[in-house]
Design a protein around this nucleic acid. Structure first.
Length: 430
RNA sequence: GGAGAGGUGGCUGAGUGGUCGAUAGCGACGGUUUGCUAAACCGUUAGACUGGGAAACCGGUCUCGGGGGUUCGAAUCCCCCCCUCUCCGCCA
């Protein structure tokens, strides 16, 4: 959520930002409406405050008054004020709600260096690292590899849980666990505090982080008869950890690395590019999350990107880095970098596919979930900045490892860095 | 799941209808004393929103887990929810 005062003072710039970010026209109309309502709200607010001030005054005077007649008069005035206040407060509540509902649909501002554009094709490739391997044998995709080596079972997943679910078996289990430990250890070495988070969270937390649990297009699984939902990412639980917290500046930055399962309905996403493990309803993810001062969030964003790159370099997987364009940013992101890993089995002759994403959300989430800090040597408090980044999404990392390290004999070489965790050098051998 | 006890400021902890945004202690910050440190003493010390002012500063409203209610007036009484602790039950 943006600061309402900022929106009012910079309405044109915020509108242009909305257009750049490809939000529906209705949101821009909402913005105008919110700005208009704010003037009304302010007036209503002053009326309510004035009434309450008088109420407090009368109530205090009543307590001190010993003369029964005068006291009776004060009580009478108090009753009238009470009725008046109720009506005014009701009006104010409606205005507040009207503004808030509209304000929360407005996306975050956009980093001046982020490319402006409407679709993912407008995102800017910053660099390509590693060279896709030349295979001297027919390349198999991870679905075929998974089936041949009895590593991934989509059919049984479908039978037991439905399309989009799968069973990992045999060495794929070792690979999954190894990747988790590998990522965790790298992040711990970088000073991140490891956390295993709940896989369910309250809807209020989901909303604070910027997810919408309800509605037709929701990507979120909700638990019936509760106010809980399955998390789509540990970003929700990691960010929620510090909801309603006032920190000392000396505590910042706070860096966490969380492990959780992730659940996504992926409504309407079936089809072409989502074969196999690429787009599934459940996967495991190692996620980075940081709370920083406003001055240092850019630096932290660079650190997260560097860590993501380091992880994929270590796994021997070629990738490219994208600076995501305005129109393809999610609501809370001020700037976002994606890593796309080379997946030799994807498409006709291999394609890059998204494996990580790191966003600087500035104060957009912090304002909603109320995370502040006291600046050292200054009065008052400021909102923190929040950032998140994928360390490893297991499902997609598994695709990248299986497809890039497949061998002519059909087995899979284990990347050196994973061997201590996997406990073997080659996957799939019986 | 059942029974009971609780949730108060950065922390601990008083406060059972008006003078309470709140006693006290700790911590932190500023000062006095001091060769330095410690101790002692004095003072300051919640947040959000908002009015006036160039500012220093001076006002107002809200917040005692959250939401509703009773009342002229609620930290205090009532209802619902959330959370914590103890005991019992169940359970990996």
């Amino acid at each position: 959520m943006l600061d309402l005062k900022y929106v009012v003072a910079n309405a044109e710039a915020v509108k242009q930002n909305c257009r750049d970010r490809n939000v529906p026209a209705a949101v821009i109309e909402d913005l105008d409406r919110a700005v208009a309502l704010e003037a009304e709200r302010k007036a209503a607010f002053h009326r309510v405050e004035e009434t309450r001030r008088r109420q407090n005054e009368v109530a205090q005077a009543t307590g001190k008054e010993r003369d029964p007649v005068k006291r009776g008069l004060l009580v009478e005035e108090g009753k009238q004020l009470k009725a008046a206040a109720a009506a005014l407060e009701d009006q104010l509540r409606k205005l507040d709600a009207g503004i808030h509902d509209r304000l929360r649909r407005i996306p975050n501002l956009t980093h001046p260096d982020a490319p402006i554009g409407q679709t993912e094709d407008d995102s800017k490739e910053i660099r390509t690292v590693g060279v896709p391997r030349a295979f001297d044998f027919p390349v198999r995709d991870h679905v075929e590899i998974g089936k041949t080596l009895d590593l991934i079972d989509f059919e049984t997943g479908g039978k037991v849980s439905g399309t989009g679910f799968y069973f990992l078996k045999n060495d794929a289990v070792l690979l999954d666990l190894a990747l988790q430990q590998f990522a965790m250890n790298r992040l711990i070495a970088a000073g991140f505090t490891p956390v295993i988070t709940p896989d369910l969270a309250r809807n209020s937390i989901l909303e604070g982080i910027g997810f919408t649990p309800r509605g037709v297009e929701t990507q979120v699984y909700s638990i019936e008869n509760t106010d809980l939902s399955l998390v789509g990412t540990a970003e929700i639980t990691l960010g929620g950890m510090l909801a309603d917290t006032l920190l000392d500046e000396s505590a910042l930055p706070l860096k966490y690395v969380g492990l959780s399962h992730c659940f996504r309905t992926e409504a309407g996403a079936a089809g072409r590019a989502s074969r196999g493990l690429y787009r599934v309803h459940q996967f495991t993810k190692v996620e980075m999350f940081a709370f920083t001062t406003p001055e240092t969030s850019g630096e932290m964003h660079a650190l997260m990107l560097a860590i993501e790159e380091e992880l994929f370099q270590a796994l021997g997987v070629p990738y490219r880095v994208l600076d995501i364009c305005s129109g393809d940013l999610g609501g809370p992101a001020y700037r976002k970098f994606d890593l796309e890993a080379w997946m030799p089995g994807r498409g006709a002759a291999g394609e890059y596919g998204e494996v990580t994403s790191t966003s600087d959300c500035t104060d957009y989430q912090a304002r909603r979930i109320n995370i502040r800090y006291r600046p050292a040597g200054q009065k008052g408090t400021r909102l923190v900045h929040t950032l998140n980044g994928t360390a490893l999404a297991l499902s997609r990392a598994i695709i990248a490892v299986l497809e890039n390290h497949q061998r002519a004999d059909g087995f899979i070489d284990v990347p050196d860095v994973l061997r201590p965790y996997v406990g073997k050098d080659v996957l799939g051998r019986r």
